[in-house]
């Protein structure tokens, strides 16, 4: 036997995590074995607590401790504007700039038939449900990839008939970037989405 059973079990569990291959799983497992017992217990507890105490916010579908997340529950946030993102981490990214005052909606993925992901696998029905209330603008903030663009297009087709304004996050030149080194795809979209000054 290559690994003692408990070690083999740990490696097998770690390998299930995204981005962790066989090699890093082994490295992490050996690291855990060398950690102080208290630290390991705290890690295990943190894992269990996070999983058990967090659920999807009933409104925006992001992770939340309560029935409704802090952002959705905040009376200073504007519920008439909803920013649609693919992943919970995108909410964190937008929150970091401390500028956006509306609310969010997390799809938990993007349309990708190749990966078996259709509208029914995303939080689309929940979004449409929300739009029945008084929402004025939906900002689609999916990544500018083929899947991100197509998901945005799909949502626009779905939402337009409801009489809600749909906008898309602009994409173009990175701020502080140099034209000469910009990739063509970025330049093309910057040109396409240029605006009058």
């Amino acid at each position: 036997m290559l690994f003692a059973k408990p070690l083999a079990d740990l490696i097998a569990q770690l390998e299930k995590l995204p981005g962790v291959g066989a090699k890093s799983a082994q490295r992490l497992a050996y690291h855990v074995l060398r950690m102080p017992g208290d630290d390991v217990r705290r890690l295990a507890e943190a894992l269990t607590r996070a999983r058990e105490s967090l659920r999807l916010c009933a409104v925006c579908q992001s992770f939340s401790e309560g029935e409704v997340c802090e952002i959705c529950a905040d009376p200073r946030r504007d519920p008439h504007t909803v920013c649609v993102v693919a992943e919970p981490r995108d909410v964190a990214a937008l929150e970091r700039i401390n500028e956006y005052k509306g609310t969010y909606h997390v799809l938990h993925g993007l349309l990708s038939p190749m990966d078996g992901v259709g509208p029914e696998n995303l939080k689309v029905r929940e979004l449409v449900e929300r739009l029945r209330a008084d929402v004025q603008e939906v900002i689609v903030a999916t990544n500018p990839t083929v899947e991100g663009d197509t998901t945005a297009l799909y949502l626009a087709k779905l939402i337009h008939p409801l009489g809600v304004k749909v906008t898309r996050l602009a994409h173009g030149m990175p701020v502080g970037g140099e034209l000469d080194y910009a990739d063509s795809a970025t330049l093309l979209s910057a040109l396409e989405y240029r605006r009058e000054i």
């Binding site: 038939p113 509208p119 663009d149 197509t150 297009l153 779905l158």
Partner: peptide, 13 residues
């Protein structure tokens, strides 16, 4: 079953 709407956005692209 795949609803027609699932095709639309890809076909538009």
């Amino acid at each position: 079953y795949v609803p027609d709407e699932a095709f639309e956005a890809w076909e538009e692209a």
